[in-house]
Design a protein around this nucleic acid. Structure first.
Lengths: 341, 341
DNA sequence: CGTTGTTCCGTAAACGTTTACGAGAACACA
DNA sequence: TGTGTTCTCGTAAACGTTTACGGAACAACG
């Protein structure tokens, strides 16, 4: 069915070596011959068998993105990743690399899928997201010497690998600054487990900003829940029942904010009127919610592209003249002021 | 670095043929030898090279899910797919198959990515979603004889391939029935392009139900927009400005509903009070929106598992004793009554 | 005419598997 | 002893590529 390089060779009555060289654009092949090979390739609808190629070259020319759920979170919060993946795939394609997304089973602590990708050499490198503060996946990859990059930072692995992250600390801090400037002093924070590194960073920025403003950090105003709608819904009432009620809430996530706003609605509290609401990571939901939610917007698509560059700069096969470099970047989150605060 | 079957053979001083047979559980190998091979494999941390295996067997043992955006829709509506993919991956894994998700570039009419997967033989079969009424992807795959299954139906390709779909027609019909029973007669429908087959089916059910109730179908109450928040936001006012205003709106999608509800809010119209709102496909957003949106819920995770079964039943290499079968199923959407109607 | 260099191409090995084939050994049976 | 069967294993080819190596043809030059 599918034509191979041998078919081309037979059809043109030349050797497979020449065919391969012609297709790969090597110098030592006559311009005329190359032309004929390319024509025949089109005519016979030839395209290279990836398995054969990978086997010979010891490289698959594909990068795996691990879609690993965070324990307790069924829905992953994936809408977040789509623009990122779009950019990642586009940039990788420019280097002739394929992006494959690998689903992890929910609650897969053992990183079974990651192991499988690495061990069967299905990809030349992997990209991790939702890094945890201590991340066993990073330890695993670093220990094995398998190339990877992360969307997000972690304490694991030090700075031995390239990474890209958003400045959640500054966003947390900016959010507080803005609320304080608008007269708030009782500001709550709804966040996921501190194992999720962005949750940790956000809280850090939040704390430091409060202290900078001379406002005491009240543990009763900080609550932890699953990083989804249910989490926000469960946990928000807890914060609203503290002795001295908050006049503002910062949610770490659009899903948590949605759940939280439902809880508020059930208590008859209206975001934007009775309480200020800020969300750290903006999504279409924030924009189209009523009231529209003030949120911090990431440049996801460009970040996807950039992560591809960063990863490739670290891979010897792709590194430029200066050789492999470990690049780590932290990108800003842009405040989008809307109607909820 | 990575150990091969040759390393095992050398280490045990036996031939690679025997090692391979032992690992693959074939009968013609001594029980004792097999034991030693397995031990050595664990000891040397052996795992088979997927490229070598694929090359020899002519099969990659992986299935590709195409994440193809619909033109004009930036966000894909992917949260919908996550539980589906979870089920799909889980069931495929039970047959030793890997699931890979392939991102298509936005607005990729040429199906470049699909072609690439097929031509480089990166997967043994593909799964398509968001089938269109006339779907060039299906034509392409059918013509090439490449195995595939779809989440959704299409006019393309007839019934020559396995598929799984939701009963959008019945959901549209049920939605109308329910609203009529509650006294509504002016019922609007906000839907995406009729190229998207589920949009077509939904509208069909909607129309037939109206006719069944002796209600004239008013074109002014039917509007088409992108299948995302912006689409719902843009198009909903159009329907509300018709001479004889609707008292109920059915949205084809949670994102369209969100955008539509924002438009309603801006007009001072409250869902659940001033107008009834129904959503065809339920998501966490519907549940946590205020008011909670009445919606039709799909069993996504089981559907993912089922689609794996259906696909495998069609692949000769996996088909049971009866041989390959084309299974096509339509699954129900369960009404979840909430507060918006 | 001999030497050297260049251009182009064929040969064959290698990547890591699986598997058809056949061989040797052990054993049973007549 | 001869024949057949069963169990176990080694040999080697094959999957589709890429690429190191060498050789043929030819040109250029002294």
């Amino acid at each position: 069915m599918a034509s191979s390089i041998h078919d081309l060779a037979r059809h043109l009555n030349i050797s497979i070596g020449t065919v391969s060289r012609a297709l790969n654009g090597r110098a030592d092949v006559n311009a005329d011959t190359r032309q004929r090979v390319l024509e025949a390739a089109r005519e016979l609808n030839y395209s290279p068998n990836q398995s054969g190629r990978s086997l010979r070259q010891g490289a698959t020319r594909s990068i795996a993105f691990m879609l690993q759920p965070h324990p307790g979170d069924q829905e992953y919060g994936e809408p977040f990743f789509i623009p990122f993946l779009t950019g990642l795939q586009a940039q990788l394609a420019e280097s002739g690399l394929d992006l494959i997304v690998v689903m992890g089973a929910p609650g897969d602590y053992q990183q079974e899928r990651l192991r499988r990708v690495v061990e069967t050499r299905r990809a030349d490198a992997v990209v991790l997201a939702w890094t945890r503060r201590e991340d066993e996946r990073i330890d695993y990859l670093a220990e094995r010497g398998f190339p990877f990059a992360t969307l997000g930072r972690s304490r694991s692995g030090g700075t031995s690998y390239p990474s890209l992250d958003l400045d959640f600390e500054k966003a947390g801090s900016d959010a507080v600054d803005r609320l304080v400037a608008r007269g708030h002093r009782r500001i709550a924070a709804i966040r996921p487990s501190l194992n999720l590194n962005f949750g940790y960073l956000f809280l850090d920025g939040y704390r430091k900003a409060l202290q900078r403003h001379g406002i005491e950090v009240d543990p009763g105003l900080i609550a932890e829940g699953f990083i989804n709608e249910a989490g926000g819904y469960q946990v928000t009432p807890r914060v609203m029942l503290s002795k001295d009620k908050p006049t503002a809430i910062i949610f770490n996530n659009d899903a948590m904010a949605l759940g939280g706003c439902k809880a508020l609605a059930e208590m008859g509290i209206r975001p934007g009127h009775d309480i200020a609401v800020t969300v750290i990571v903006d999504t279409p939901l924030c924009r189209y919610f009523s009231p529209a939610l003030t949120a911090f917007r990431p440049a996801l698509e460009p970040m996807g592209r950039r992560l591809a560059e960063i990863l490739l700069a670290w891979l010897p096969a792709f590194a430029g003249p200066e050789g492999p470099r470990i690049i780590r970047e932290v990108w800003p989150l842009e405040l989008i002021a809307r109607d909820s605060d």
